[in-house]
Design a protein around this nucleic acid. Structure first.
Lengths: 115, 115
DNA sequence: TATAATACTGTGTAACACACAGTATTGTCA
DNA sequence: TGACAATACTGTGTGTTACACAGTATTATA
């Protein structure tokens, strides 16, 4: 098998592994109100690259589920749409964090075993 | 929002978070040859529940990508299909583990911050 | 003997990340 | 001043895959 194909496969698998944490990342960052573009930068700072075409539908989806609420703020230099966790969203995030701890310990058990 | 709906949403989000690690789990367990049904039980022992209708297509997919190889073994009490990581699969698994460590440290940073 | 456990195969569908495309406004620089 | 970049958001289409649903066969058990 070509090294190029291996890289493709690896990248795709990494992608699949990452997708699970992006939701929690977004929700965690929205414990405080933030607008989409700034959120994207904050995610990037956390090492999570996410395109606008992925982020905005995700925000819409979480809002539809009433985990987020959004509002337009007319401000300098331009209007922005701010998102914030709802109380329900906070509850859900707390639950997700428990799951993350489980995933974390599973990762530790797997990677430590074969170090 | 109904508590029932929240539970649904939480479960679905947990599910999405888990999917990322199932691939690595399967590959890790197949560092040694194992047949499908036994693999499913081993996964379950690791806290990862996975139906046959999910596991077998995943095994097929990984085999198509040449990360796994399989063979029928005629044995007592019945023939079984064994799966084992290929050398390529071992390479890929090592790469995935690096990614898992990244995810792990990200989880730590997020959950510790808000403890 | 009927049912459960063991073991595997195949098809269909919902969900969603990402690709692709677009819009508008403000900022920067030659 | 105008072209391009950055800022900021919206919408549609598609590929992928977990899971739902369905099925098969053999062995084990009550």
């Amino acid at each position: 098998m070509e090294p190029k194909q291996i890289t493709e496969i690896v990248e795709k698998l990494k992608q699949e592994m990452r997708r699970g944490i992006t939701i929690a990342a977004v929700m965690q960052l929205l414990s405080e109100a933030q607008y989409g573009y700034a959120l994207q930068k904050a995610l990037s700072d956390s090492g999570i690259e996410m395109g606008q075409d992925t982020l905005y539908p995700l925000l819409r989806r979480l809002e539809e589920q009433e985990l987020l609420a959004s509002e337009w703020r007319v401000e300098d230099p331009r209007p922005r749409r701010y998102y914030l966790l709802t109380p329900t969203g906070q509850t859900v995030l707390a639950e997700l964090k428990l799951e993350l701890k489980r995933i974390e310990s599973w990762i530790r058990s797997v990677t430590d075993e074969t170090k």
